[in-house]
Design a protein around this nucleic acid. Sequence first.
DNA 1: AAGTTTGTAACTTCTGTTGTTGCGAATAAG
DNA 2: CTTATTCGCAACAACAGAAGTTACAAACTT
Lengths: 155, 155
Amino acid sequence: MRHDSRLSRMLHVLIHMDRHEGTATSETIAAMLNTNPVVVRRTMAGLREKGYVRSEKGHGGGWTLGRPLSEMTLLDIYEAVGEPAVFAVGPACEQPSCLVEQAVNAALAEAFEEAEKLLLSRFGKVTLADIARDFDARMARHPAFATAAGAGWHS
Amino acid sequence: MRHDSRLSRMLHVLIHMDRHEGTATSETIAAMLNTNPVVVRRTMAGLREKGYVRSEKGHGGGWTLGRPLSEMTLLDIYEAVGEPAVFAVGPACEQPSCLVEQAVNAALAEAFEEAEKLLLSRFGKVTLADIARDFDARMARHPAFATAAGAGWHS
DNA sequence: AAGTTTGTAACTTCTGTTGTTGCGAATAAG
DNA sequence: CTTATTCGCAACAACAGAAGTTACAAACTT
């Protein structure tokens, strides 16, 4: 099953925005993500509602960060993109009348809830600043990319 | 994103088969799952390869359990249906050249791997006999269903 | 030989993300 | 105030993967 890449994409964008001076247009961001400006606006609308980014229309407009990366966790962004379903596997029926199926669903639900709890709890502990620091470490190990990467927008 | 219900369905079928005397045809099973005999054969083919069920062609043929429920775990069945992707959320690109994206992917991968490890480890500890026991407990609490449920095939 | 049942390929349907087009609204520049 | 830029949003098309369907061959029972 093809997976949802919105969380991943938004993390990517936010860190770039932090390293980039001024505003970034949907077009610029779309080029970086290899996608379409409309998809960028659609996805970032959720982040704007929560105040993680701001948008300005017209000349010189575009997107800016609404708060520092140290004040955004993976969980925040996961929630801002609409809390998409975490699991690609699930029950055949939500409210089965069959008692066997009820027992199966209960066993699966228990396992999935535990895993989801762990995942989201971990998401809550990782800030975007942590990821940006890891990016810095990676750049230090790859000096060839340093100039281009440090300059701002790139894919 | 719509999820994969093969694991859930196979657990459902296997427990019914355990409580059912003799063989069950794909048609009977399909009726119970509200689906199609071909879908049943397709999905159960994986279980047959691992020996969890056997199939016989012709008159009086159909499906039978290949071993007791106490010797099948959720993990076994998960693997037998093809180890479908657990998560519906994931990276936009598997091998990104962008170092920011690499750092994002690494952070997400770490969290997802941990959650998947927990999930599968739990799957490995739950046998189908455990679920069947839970079914028995549910039936004891719902005496109205006891006759129909105990008789064998039902939805 | 006839009837039942699985095995499998090929195709369609369904659902949700992603991609695209088009146009309106807001803002800045000249 | 006119024009260029940029977001906002609705509507629709493309795509991917699971599920459903059709058709027919193969194997087995009686």
